[in-house]
Design a binder for these strands. Structure first.
Length: 847
RNA sequence: GGGGACGUAGCUCAGUUGGUUAGAGCGUCACAUUGACAUUGUGAAGGUCAGAGGUUCAACUCCUCUCGUCCCCACCA
């Protein structure tokens, strides 16, 4: 029946078979789980990009999500882990554009319909790559409920949400200055812009005052935008300029007369205190322009080239125009000076291209009315973030939030469900083409060409995937979801927006707890980067070391919200641990299964069962408290040290195979959420086969009060101390293990030693261990003196005496300090006294 | 400019509401090895817990400041 277990664990041989077994069992689907399951537990998987590839960030998140899922499933909850993928507007479109470029075409020559068709083909081809990799990681999600953000049902949800918000006036269309990425050729939200420190120049340009020979000097990092200047602004408090307010400037090159205006937003300290105002190409200038009713002149187009308004520079690239303008100003002696200047340049988050602020017609979501309840939900504790400090970050952002630009000039995404009447241009929000215009009864319509920001559809993710806007059973059972597990980098992009949109549309928070994991760094603490080659690809690592080892390496030694380093040696270390488990199991399974009831006979038995109970309690508590690293570390230490190093060795004498199997079996259950593959495999060797016997649905263990024993903990602890002391002695005196020692002992604890004499003899490698009165002990413990027959290193002895004396002195000074003895709690004082007594006794015997 | 995190053994990290002679893994060194495991075992060396003050009987732990590293937010051209 049982197959031979190989000497070393070979994960690749069995992982995919086990995953298939799980998937076929149907247990990923909560409707198929055995028993009555009342308490719902739901996790919505943050959808990876459909054309993406699994990286360590995914691996971290998915592992933690899966740990919670597997734990709750075993605990008996109605557990749903819902997977899916995101259409990822920009990045997917860019990939396909790159592909067709290699065929020598661009999207415009292909046309919208054909291009979108090509993207769907691409999605079909590569969309399963990521889900296959998610499976490879052992993720126990319900694939029968898998969703894609552009599924018909999710598109329906997006339409419903958009139309509702539009009809309520929360979505509006406006001509505004937006962040434009020239390379992606689309508007971006504020969040998609990052600020990068960039070395540049600050040019000081003379702007002649109209009707005089005087001029005002302005400082700028972007001289080419001067063509679109419509004012110069100064601070009203700035005495240097008060006399000029209201006067006119002759704008160089353009020879246009522009006013000097006063605005308190101008920083007197910076540059010359006078600012050129270009409302069309700078967000701050745009605001100043609004206040002072300045005209807006577009001199740069969406194609990153100068417009007709730029006069003679029409058609030139921004870079060329800058160069030419500088030369011309210099020739006209209008450049006062040029200095080196480092500033935070706005760049596209995705492609790092410098952002071009441009005026354009875009769709916006009014966010303030949504932010209010979203903040209230966090304040009242309906949503909590772990770690808590991110709640402050959340509030700060929510308090300073701007309207969200939701339209993108992309073809891949949800086309905005707005239809313009071709007669009167009235927009109607509708999922399908309207029959007739409400305003003029026109019959001809044209749909808005723009698509929605990807995050608009992912903002609905927790409820759209459960069937919303329909009132489905899933929505009723599984929403709000229990936990959202994600990285801090998308707290604003995604988490905050989900909270706002979920409250808006379902009146519920999307999730009760947000668990934030850290980002993965390379060995030097830098962000992993594909281009620099510092990244570790999890897939080959999984193949080399096994998936369970990867899972441990992204969870152990990490804490919520803190970034952590990853390197191959770490993974190899956890592979070793998995192999240790494998061999522990191999050893246990090589022995005949016991007949009859479980019997706790010896001190070691009592001790290991007690330890196991503590482990059950600790692992359960830590998982409940989201301390996954601590839970995993406890499992690691127990198996390797308590169980393998001590109990397993002792079992070679005591041969209590019942306990061996019992401990292994409970441990496998506890460890299953962390390392599902190897535990399921070992489990299948340990128990009868059959679907309902699979580890994945075994009930979560409980601590057994009947087998807890604190005295066993103490006594076994002493035993360990004795053994370690002898081993230590042997090593310090360079006595080879082949040489068996003779040890004599005496004292109160002789009973403990006599009861476990064979164990001590084996583990300390002794030929003889006998009770005998000792005059000069080699060493001593509370209740036990011992003497080892061997030559004693005097220097060693002295060193120990010295350290012991120092320790005693430290304790004595503490205990003679009245402040301590009078003010510290009695237990603490008693404890210190006991320590002193023990140390003194030990020292006496050594001398 | 605002906010946050981190600084504990050579390296990567634990250290729960203040009370242990400060821990683990890797690495190093010594020794061991024919039945579960060399992806191993046993033991050792290695730390003024970044620095300076303060609170306290007692500080790695709480407070303040300083130094160092990193990150987030922000329309100083």
């Amino acid at each position: 029946m049982t197959k031979e277990l190989g000497k070393a664990y070979q994960p690749t041989d069995i992982e995919s078979a086990i995953y298939t077994k799980w998937e076929r069992s149907g247990f990923f689907n909560p409707d198929n789980l055995p028993g009555k399951r009342k308490t719902p537990f739901t996790i919505s998987m943050p959808p990876p990009n459909v054309t993406g590839e699994l990286h360590l960030g995914h691996a971290t998140g998915l592992t933690i999500q899966d740990i919670m899922t597997r734990y709750h499933r075993m605990k008996g909850d109605r557990t749903l882990y819902l997977p899916g993928t995101d259409h990822a507007g920009i990045s997917t479109q860019v990939m396909v554009e790159r592909l067709i470029a290699s065929e020598g075409v661009d999207r415009n020559s292909l046309g919208r319909a054909e291009f979108v068709k090509r993207v769907w083909q691409w999605k079909k081809k590569y969309g399963t790559r990521i889900t296959t990799q998610v499976r490879q990681l052992g993720t126990s999600c319900d694939w029968s409920r898998e969703h894609f953000t552009m599924d018909p049902s999710l598109t329906a949800a997006v339409h419903k949400a958009f139309i509702t918000l539009f009809n309520e006036g929360l979505i509006y269309r406006g001509t505004r200055i937006v962040n434009w990425c020239p390379r992606c050729a689309t508007a971006l939200s504020d969040l998609e812009v990052k600020h990068v420190e960039t070395a540049s120049k600050l040019w000081f340009i003379r702007y002649p005052l109209s009707g005089t020979t005087k001029y005002i000097v302005v400082a700028t990092t972007r001289p080419e935008t001067m063509l679109g200047d419509t004012a110069v602004a100064v601070n009203p408090k700035d005495k240097r300029y008060t006399q000029y307010i209201g006067q006119k400037i002759i704008l160089p090159i353009m020879n246009r007369e522009i006013p000097i205006v006063a605005d308190s937003r101008v920083d007197m300290e910076f540059g010359t205190g006078a600012v050129k105002v270009t409302p069309a190409h700078d967000a701050a200038d745009y605001d100043i322009g609004l206040t002072h009713h300045l005209p807006v002149i577009n001199v740069i187009g969406q194609d990153n080239k100068m417009t007709k308004e730029a006069g003679e520079y029409y058609g030139k690239s921004v870079q060329d125009a800058r160069h030419d303008i500088f030369i011309r100003l210099e020739n006209e002696e209008l450049i006062e000076k040029t200095i080196d200047y480092v500033h935070q340049q706005a760049r596209c988050d995705r492609c790092s291209t410098p952002i071009e602020p441009l005026i354009s017609k875009q769709w916006f979501l009014k966010i303030a009315p949504l932010a209010k309840p979203a903040m209230a939900a966090m304040k009242s504790g309906k949503v909590a973030i772990i770690p808590k400090r991110f709640e402050r970050v959340y509030f700060h952002w929510m308090n300073n939030i701007h309207d969200w630009c939701i339209s993108r000039q992309l073809w891949w995404g949800h086309q905005i469900p707005i239809w313009y009447c071709q007669k009167c241009q009235e927009p109607t929000a509708s999922s399908a083409k309207p029959k007739s215009c409400k305003k003029c009864h026109g019959k001809q319509f044209k749909q808005e060409e723009d698509t929605l920001d990807t995050w608009f559809s992912s903002g609905l993710w927790t409820f759209s995937t459960l069937g919303w806007p329909d009132k489905t059973k899933d929505l009723k059972l599984s929403h709000p979801t229990s936990v959202m597990e994600t990285g801090w980098d998308i707290l604003f992009f995604w988490v905050a927006r989900m909270i706002m949109l979920s409250l808006k549309f379902t009146n519920q928070v999307p999730f009760k707890t947000v668990y934030i994991h850290g980002l993965v760094l390379d060995k030097d603490g830098k962000k992993m980067s594909k281009s620099k080659g510092t990244g570790i690809d999890p897939i080959p690592m999984m193949e080399k070391y096994g998936t369970d080892a990867i899972r441990l390496s992204v969870v152990l030694g990490t804490s919520p919200g803190l970034d952590y380093r990853m390197y191959e040696e770490k993974i190899a270390g956890y592979r070793n641990f998995i192999n240790k488990l494998w061999n522990v199991a191999r050893f246990i399974l090589s022995q005949p299964a016991p007949k009859g009831k479980l019997e706790i006979k010896s001190l070691a038995d009592t001790w290991i069962m007690n330890r196991l109970n503590s482990l059950v309690t600790a692992v359960t508590k830590n998982i409940e408290e989201f301390k996954f690293s601590e839970a995993g570390t406890a499992l690691y230490d127990f198996l390797w040290h308590d169980f393998a190093d001590w109990y397993l060795e002792i079992s070679k004498i005591e041969k209590n195979t019942g306990i061996l199997r019992q401990v292994l079996s409970v441990w496998l259950k506890l460890a299953h959420p962390f390392i599902p593959f190897v535990t399921e495999e070992v489990w299948s060797q340990l128990v009868p086969s059959g679907k309902n016997h699979m580890l994945i649905v075994q009930p979560w263990p409980h601590a057994d009060k009947k087998t807890t024993s604190s005295s066993a903990e103490t006594n076994f602890g002493l035993l360990q101390q004795y053994i370690t002391a002898i081993r230590n002695f042997r090593s310090e005196h360079s006595i080879p293990p082949t040489e068996l020692l003779t040890v004599a002992f005496s004292g109160k604890q002789t009973g403990l030693v006599l009861d476990n004499i064979d164990i001590i003899k084996m583990l300390a490698r002794l030929s003889k261990l006998e009770r005998k009165d000792i005059t000069k002990p080699t060493g001593s413990f509370p209740g036990l003196d011992y003497s080892i027959e061997a030559k004693i290193d005097a220097a060693k002895q002295q060193k120990e005496v010295a350290s012991l004396s120092a320790y005693i002195q430290q304790l004595e000074s503490k205990l003679t300090n009245k402040n301590f003895t009078e003010r510290a709690p009695k237990e603490i004082v008693a404890k210190e006294k006991e320590k002193l007594r023990e140390a003194q006794e030990k020292l006496k015997k050594l001398l």
